[in-house]
Simulated assay, not measured.
Amino acid sequence: MTKKQHLPTKVCPICKKPFLWRKKWEKNWDSVKYCSKRCSGNSKRRTLKA
């Protein structure tokens, strides 16, 4: 079992906060961009405004 301190991390492009790997993202970790559904929704609004 992997300890939490050794899990991969990414930085969310919307809120600029780091987030950790989650079990539910195991199969598609490479395609995960946002830390939450909220940030994902904000990215869609941001592209419409620009």
Rank of each mutant, 00 (worst) to 15 (best):
C35D: 01
K44L: 11
K23M: 06
Y34Q: 02
C35E: 02
L7A: 05
W25G: 04
C39N: 05
R22V: 02
D30H: 02
V32A: 01
P13L: 04
R22M: 04
K10P: 03
C39Y: 05
K17D: 11
S40G: 10
R38K: 15
Q5I: 11
W21R: 05
C39V: 02
I14M: 07
D30S: 06
R45Q: 15
K4G: 09
T9Y: 13
G41Y: 09
S43C: 09
K37S: 15
T2W: 14
M1W: 12
M1Q: 13
A50I: 12
P18C: 08
W21G: 03
K37C: 09
T9M: 14
K23Q: 09
V32Q: 02
K37V: 11
R45L: 14
N28M: 09
D30M: 05
L20N: 13
P8G: 08
P13D: 02
K17S: 10
K33C: 07
W25K: 02
W29F: 03
K37R: 15
S40L: 05
K16E: 08
V32D: 04
K10W: 06
N28R: 14
N28W: 07
Q5Y: 09
P13H: 04
F19Y: 08
K27F: 08
P8M: 07
W29C: 01
D30V: 05
Y34K: 01
Y34N: 01
S43G: 07
F19K: 05
E26A: 10
K24H: 11
K33D: 04
E26P: 00
C35G: 03
W29N: 00
M1V: 10
K27C: 05
E26D: 12
W29A: 02
C15H: 06
K37A: 11
K16S: 05
V32K: 05
C12S: 03
L20D: 13
L48T: 12
R38V: 12
S40R: 13
S31Y: 06
K10V: 01
K10G: 00
Y34G: 01
F19V: 00
K24D: 09
P8R: 12
G41P: 08
E26M: 07
L20Y: 10
Y34F: 15
P8A: 09
H6S: 13
K49P: 07
L20W: 09
C12F: 00
K33F: 00
Q5A: 13
A50S: 14
S40F: 08
W21S: 00
T47K: 14
S36P: 09
Y34H: 06
F19S: 01
G41N: 13
P8S: 10
R45F: 10
S31W: 04
K24M: 08
R22C: 00
K3P: 10
P18W: 07
K10E: 02
A50P: 10
T9C: 12
C12V: 00
K33T: 09
N28A: 09
L20F: 11
K33R: 09
S40E: 08
P13C: 05
P13T: 04
P13W: 03
R38Q: 11
P18N: 13
V11N: 08
M1H: 15
R22G: 00
C39S: 04
W25H: 01
K44G: 12
E26Y: 03
S36T: 08
P13A: 04
K16W: 00
